[in-house]
């Protein structure tokens, strides 16, 4: 079942699932005096504002959120597919371990669900995105992790999804590069807001792209850690 009612909006969609690390390590206080999770929550507020200022993105982008860790200490879908126009940010709580592999698999399932819902509704779509943000080491069992990695790689190779991996200070970059063919990018400082504004602009560009056109994404300079 989908949370999205397609009847009023026949625009093509660009689905994006956010797989967000909400493990205990995200409670760490940053140089700004705020915790990482607070910075992440501010970033999600910036994403909402940014999407709502963009008339194209507003009717074409749809989001889902998966949290990794948190009070339940598990990977959970926190928000089912929601059109940007109905998206309302909400604060996430950091706690527990980092079952990132499980989070990735839930993300991939959501992507397949989004396509199924859109197909059923006769709404066209661009390739879905999965954006993964983490600050630590996956705590899944080796079996679970390798299954998640191979699922991600297969999905990416079959052009089922576009995976972006963003590391926050302390992230294990080599683990992150296992589940995507694109090199992981590191967040400079705690520039979550800049990252989410970039995400909004990039999704808007993707949602406007036409057959045969090269997708020009905005520069990642405003948020990317310099030197990587």
């Amino acid at each position: 079942m989908s949370a999205v009612d397609y009847s009023g909006n026949p625009n093509q969609r660009t689905p994006c699932v956010l797989v967000l690390d909400t493990s205990g390590s995200m409670q760490a206080t940053t140089s700004t005096g705020k915790s990482r999770i607070a910075e992440l929550n501010d970033g999600i507020i910036a994403l909402e504002r940014s999407l709502k200022e963009d008339s194209t993105a507003l009717v074409r982008v749809q989001l889902a959120i998966v949290s990794v860790g948190g009070p339940q200490d598990d990977a959970d879908m926190m928000m089912d597919w929601t059109d940007a126009t109905h998206f309302q940010s909400f604060p996430l709580t950091a706690d527990g371990s980092t079952p990132l592999g499980r989070g990735l698999r839930i993300g991939l399932q959501l992507v397949e669900q989004a396509k199924q819902n859109l197909k059923t509704s006769g709404v066209s779509y661009t390739r879905p995105w999965m954006m993964v943000i983490t600050d630590g080491e996956p705590t899944d069992s080796g079996e679970e992790w390798s299954a998640a990695v191979s699922e991600c790689k297969a999905a990416e190779a079959a052009k089922k999804v576009e995976i972006f991996a963003i590391g926050v200070e302390g992230a294990n970059v080599s683990k992150m590069s296992e589940f995507t063919s694109k090199p992981p990018l590191m967040l400079g400082g705690m520039k979550f807001k800049e990252l989410f504004v970039w995400l909004s602009a990039s999704l808007s560009a993707a949602s406007r792209s036409r057959p045969g056109e090269k997708l020009e994404l905005p520069s990642t300079d405003p948020w990317r850690h310099v030197g990587l």
Partner: peptide, 11 residues
């Protein structure tokens, strides 16, 4: 005929 995605086609 565009394949699955709205922003991609065949050549």
């Amino acid at each position: 005929a565009n394949g699955e995605y709205a922003n991609e086609t065949f050549f």
